[in-house]
């Protein structure tokens, strides 16, 4: 085990997969010479050269489309979108091309590519730079949606994503790049579609991904003092979704709260709540509740932004409501 940041863990995953498979390459804005606007791709250009580590123009649709064509002909591109908010520029490529090619061509082609894109708020970057868009990708069949929280998961999941024969949206959080955690030494793979219990509990399951996992862990500490034992279930990937772990945890605790940074309306929490209702209705002691980002474009003002993003207090409040 060694302690590294998410930034380093992702970098390690890239380096190891580059090393393992000569068909893996990376393209994106400022990923090579500048080493990434979040410095995630540090050292890659120097080590692997500019055939495999490519600085692109600012052209998100072009980046994703290029990766798609390369993937269809046997390469394994990792396309970096500087943030997922700019990824919206490439939605057509992602939704109509990357996600659908396998199906609409009768299963005769694979699109084994990863789109890495950080997102999330908390840095006063305002309305066009701060959102978490997981639900939008979750909505689209054909895409895998992976959302890591801790460094070990970031590393192990990215390596699996690169090896996956499906296109994977790998959604990082800008606010977690500097967050440290233990990462196993040597080859470390985390399969896509396996949730992870980040804290065991027996009274309520807090279901989260990415930065909200940390928010839930904080909330769980406070709830402990209130005599409520909260389990924190990190889904790690929304597609594939680990229904087994989800149902096992919630049938044990009999209560669930989903916690997401994305907009509440149309968020993934609603999807989870519906699944729990459809499958575990008789096991539930209370309706599934949801915590999510405020349904507004992110405000710049510090206080307003803080109020727009779920925090431990909001989670604790929701759980206390549930227990009446």
């Amino acid at each position: 085990m060694s302690e590294v940041t998410c930034r380093e863990a992702i970098n390690q995953a890239l380096q190891e997969e580059f090393e393992r498979d000569p068909n893996v390459f990376l393209l994106g804005e400022d990923v090579a010479l500048y080493e990434g606007s979040f410095k995630v791709t540090r050292g890659l250009l120097a080590r692997f050269g500019d055939r495999r580590v490519i600085d692109t123009p600012i052209a998100e649709a072009g980046i994703v489309g290029l990766a798609c064509g390369a993937a269809m002909t046997g390469l394994r591109p990792v396309a970096e979108l500087m943030t997922v908010n700019f990824g919206v520029v490439a939605f057509d490529q992602i939704f109509n091309h990357v996600a659908k090619a396998r199906y609409m061509f009768g299963g005769k082609v694979a699109v084994p590519m990863v789109i890495r894109a950080p997102g999330g708020g908390g840095n006063q970057l305002g309305a066009q730079h701060s959102h978490s868009l997981e639900p939008m990708f979750l909505h689209c069949p054909g895409l895998r949606v992976v959302v890591p929280s801790v460094p070990a998961d970031a590393k192990g999941l990215l390596k699996s994503a690169i090896r996956s024969d499906d296109p994977v949206m790998f959604l990082e959080h800008e606010g977690l790049y500097g967050t440290k955690g233990e990462v196993p030494d040597g080859e470390h793979l985390v399969p896509l579609g396996k949730a992870d219990i980040k804290r065991e509990g027996k009274d309520v399951t807090l279901i989260a991904v990415s930065k909200m996992v940390y928010v839930c862990l904080d909330a769980a500490k406070t709830l402990e003092k209130e005599g409520i034992s909260a389990e924190v279930l990190d889904l790690r990937s929304l597609n594939p979704l680990d229904r087994d772990s989800l149902f096992t945890s919630v049938s044990k605790t009999r209560r669930a709260v989903t916690v997401e940074e994305s907009w509440l309306t149309g968020g993934w929490g609603g999807e989870i709540a519906a699944l729990l209702m459809e499958n575990l209705f008789d096991d539930l002691d209370a309706p599934v509740l949801r915590v999510g980002g405020a349904d507004v474009p992110m405000p710049y003002n510090r206080n307003l932004e803080i109020a727009a993003i779920p925090n431990p207090d909001a989670v604790v409040g929701k759980v206390l409501d549930m227990f009446g």
């Binding site: 908010n85 700019f86 919206v88 520029v89 006063q124 970057l125 305002g126 309305a127 066009q128 730079h129 405000p299 710049y300 003002n301 510090r302 307003l304």
Partner: peptide, 29 residues
Amino acid sequence: GKATGCSRGKGGSMHMFDAELRFMGGYGI
């Protein structure tokens, strides 16, 4: 980020606006 700002503190550095001056916005994409 103050209420007296040209975008009332909601826009910030990248999203300045003033309809009267016909400055139709700063955009971040």
